[in-house]
Write a protein that binds this DNA or RNA. Structure first.
Lengths: 201, 201, 201, 201
DNA sequence: CATGAATGAGGTTTCATTCAT
DNA sequence: AATGAATGAAACCTCATTCAT
């Protein structure tokens, strides 16, 4: 009767449902994934879904959150102790890319399938993009010193975030070939490391 | 009632429906926009919709196409006669940004609301991103000369496309403040112009 | 400018529409045949249909009528001058079968596809079946002399009408093989000729 | 609301829906009977219909099947142990007529309203008519001994099936007067018993 | 007479969600 | 906590019919 033990399949129904939702939604997209599909895949009854999530949209949101929280945490942790802003930026990108690379299905759902699927997702996506931009902006501003204007720093940080996102998106679209994101951090770092220098006179 | 020739509002029902669809979908998103909403806004009967579009999905696709065809055409036209690959890239970005800036609602729908809303949209989006990346990749490869490897060029072109997309997305999310994209091309050009140099030893 | 002349295709639009309706309805059934299908097949505009028929149901009714009027007329004409009631019955069956055999598509529609397709058809079908039964009943009563009761004559005439109908139906279902109804009249005549004798003590 | 066990009206919703469908379809015909009509009559919610039948067409088919399966089973059972082919034929007709007589509304739907209402019905009707003809044909062939040719036996069996069908149809059209089919088997038996003798030389 | 664009009522079906057991 | 039968709102789309040209 030890907690967490018991019959096989009991291993946290909430977790099972979340995983099932990821699988189904990554395959079919959010709208086409029915709650029934998800509970069937999870091996639970339809009503059980609502014991763990208040609505269908909530699982989608949980998936988006899971990925982005991991990405933000990884970035925040990776930059600690970096000697220079350039290094901070590079480590952040590397960390974020690693998080995306770890779970292609989740990345596929979050980057490709979730965006226009539900108003609540858009809101969350906006928040996350803003948070990421803010993170990056600090480094960019530091790199530029006092020399660049705020607008340039804004645009540059959006560029970084967008670039990383598109690289992951392309990788996911190609079916997430193995090892396909390992070199991306390096290239992007050099690209932006050098490029940001171009923004100061 | 076929109100005949010159009456107000006769300006091509197909066009009116497209505009109405853009308005409604940009407000509510694709899924929440009902055909009825669209035809009400357009001032036509429900069935009239299907005289111009075979299905709801078709208007969404038409909107996506409209924006992306314009962007691709503008880019292709802008780069003609540019003296250098750097210049080609810069003019392309400027042209594409101008197209997005011209119609914030359309940009909002295409960049924010359409992805993930329907499988057909995803397919189209993939095609367009590929086309844009190809366009950019030519310039990037030329800038790099024979020195950069193919993978770097791929990643760099994805970075450019993603950066432009994110800049527009951010602008749209802020409510598309007037003149907000005019300076972006300049900054991005300098950023990537200098940055690409960093990819060669 | 002679009447009936003019451009090819003018040959009575009403007739063309009727023929087109027969083709389409015999292929797809009444419900699945749209007015648009019919006018397309007839080579006229959608609205033209309503210049010749007040409603879709009217063409179906016209088709049912066409076949049954021909059958009734043929039967009535065939029995004139027959020397005996047996002969009258036989000639009537032969005549009716010949009418059905002449136009398999029409028979297919009237016997197979029309029955449950529209309430108005049912009413018409009822009338026709009654008329045919009445016709047959006269002969049956005459054959039976005063000996059979009315109920027997009713049932026998229904049997004859039903038998003829089922024979045609089976033939139509088999794809209306050539010459497949020529021998039916002979067999049915012998069957009922002898059989009716069994109804009197 | 899942009212649980013993409440009035719980008698298997599937059964209630089938009965309601029969009532509504026998009144209005298949096309005019809406799923909403049926569920209203059955006292269940609209969506409940689809818990028991995959589509509207399926209830119609279930009704057709119910009647014809009963008829075929009754005929097959009735003929067992009959001393002569004439007797087999007579008992079969009597059994089939009894089945139709038992449920006038169902007979009305199956014989009058279902044919032509949906392609799937036609297919089923064809199968059943074939099965009945085959049944009858065995007896007819036996009665004819080796003397009649195959074509005659085919036609005769079609005649029997058509006759029975038309008798029931007429009865249904007259509003299914009580006891109106009891004597029919007797008359038809004598008619065909004697008549089949006329097919051999 | 002919046209065909426009109409709009209406039906089938899906599916997120509830709740009695 | 878990179940799953039942709910019922809602949306897409079709198509018979009209009528201005």
């Amino acid at each position: 009767m030890a907690r967490g033990g018991g019959a096989r399949g009991t291993a946290d129904r909430g977790e099972r449902i979340l995983r099932a939702a990821l699988e189904v939604m990554a395959e079919r997209g959010y709208a086409a994934a029915t709650v029934r599909d998800i509970t069937d895949r999870a091996g639970v009854a339809a009503g059980t879904f609502y014991l763990y999530y208040p609505a269908k949209e909530a699982v989608g949101l949980a998936l988006v959150d899971a990925l982005y929280r991991a990405a933000l945490a990884a970035a925040a942790s990776a930059r600690r102790g970096a000697p220079s802003p350039e290094e901070k930026l590079m480590r952040s990108m590397r960390a974020v890319l690693a998080v995306f690379a770890r779970d292609p299905a989740l990345s596929r759902f979050v980057l490709l399938l979730a965006p226009g699927a539900h108003p609540a997702f858009d809101e969350r996506l906006r928040e996350v993009h803003e948070a990421l931009c803010t993170l990056v902006r600090d480094d960019v501003a530091e790199i530029l010193g006092g020399r660049g204007d705020g607008r340039s720093a804004d645009l540059a940080s959006q560029a970084v975030v967008g670039a990383v996102g598109e690289v992951v998106t392309s990788w996911v679209r190609q079916g997430a070939p193995a090892g396909g994101l390992d070199d991306a951090a390096e290239v992007l770092s050099r690209l932006f490391g050098r490029g940001l220098g171009g923004l100061v006179p």
